[in-house]
């Protein structure tokens, strides 16, 4: 049980696909201009991760090693096409926003990574738990990035839905760069740096100002 818990938590936090493993950067940079887009992209990717994880785990003894990558890709592509068709049928607004990036989930290396390195080597239950953990980890990361960029760039949260929240008032002059591509790189860079600081247990605030401690540490290393 403990092992399964770890599988789940790993994807959420310490091996977060976006902030630690830096996987799937294309959608991370491209569709996080609003929290809504980030959330939807995260959920779509999670569904594919989940479906492909189960199928590829079940088929692990049937698929010969030599053709495992093409087999995984066909399975992943099937789930992506399902997401694409269903989102266009039921959520046309957001599907149009994400447009090309939904079919591109196929080549998101996060999904192939999980199928190849994890799901095809463990039982279905662990594959499901891992997929849920990584999927949620990817989703919160995208929503978080989208949220920051949306607040800075529009002053709102969850634009384009009925539950849009006006975070900053009329006085706020939107910072356009946040929602442009450059803003994606800047925001991601800062968040990843903060994440590293939080994750690094040997790091203390003193190092930033003390100077000597940091130098000593570097020298001993």
């Amino acid at each position: 049980m403990a092992e399964k818990n770890r599988d789940f938590v790993k994807g959420l936090w310490e091996e977060n696909p976006v902030f630690v493993m830096l996987l799937g950067m294309c959608p991370v940079l491209a569709v996080t201009s609003t929290a809504t887009n980030g959330l939807f992209m995260g959920l779509a990717t999670s569904f594919v991760l989940f479906g492909a994880g189960i199928v590829n785990s079940l088929l692990q003894n049937i698929i010969p090693d030599e053709v495992r990558i093409p087999s995984f890709i066909v399975v992943i592509a099937t789930f992506v096409t399902i997401v694409d068709l269903v989102s266009r049928a039921y959520f046309p607004g957001i599907a149009e926003q994400l447009a090309l990036f939904i079919p591109l989930i196929i080549v998101n290396c996060l999904i192939l990574n999980r199928s190849e390195a994890f799901a095809s080597n463990v039982n279905v239950l662990r594959a499901i738990i891992d997929a849920l953990g990584r999927g949620l980890g990817f989703t919160w990361a995208l929503t978080f990035l989208g949220g920051i960029r949306e607040i800075l760039g529009f002053g709102t949260l969850f634009r384009g839905t009925e539950s849009v929240i006006q975070v900053l008032g009329e006085w706020y002059q939107p910072m356009l760069i946040a929602i442009l591509p450059a803003g994606a790189f800047i925001t991601l860079g800062i968040v990843v740096a903060l994440f590293n600081v939080i994750m690094d247990e040997s790091f203390s605030i003193k190092d930033l100002f003390g100077g000597t401690a940091a130098v000593e540490k570097e020298q001993t290393a």
């Binding site: 088929l59 049937i62 698929i63 010969p64 030599e66 053709v67 093409p70 087999s71 066909v74 399975v75 592509a77 099937t78």
Partner: peptide, 15 residues
């Protein structure tokens, strides 16, 4: 091995 072709074909058909 014919098995390679068979498996991949079956997966594609199922898809």
């Amino acid at each position: 091995q014919p098995r390679l072709i068979l498996v991949l074909t079956l997966i594609t058909i199922a898809s």
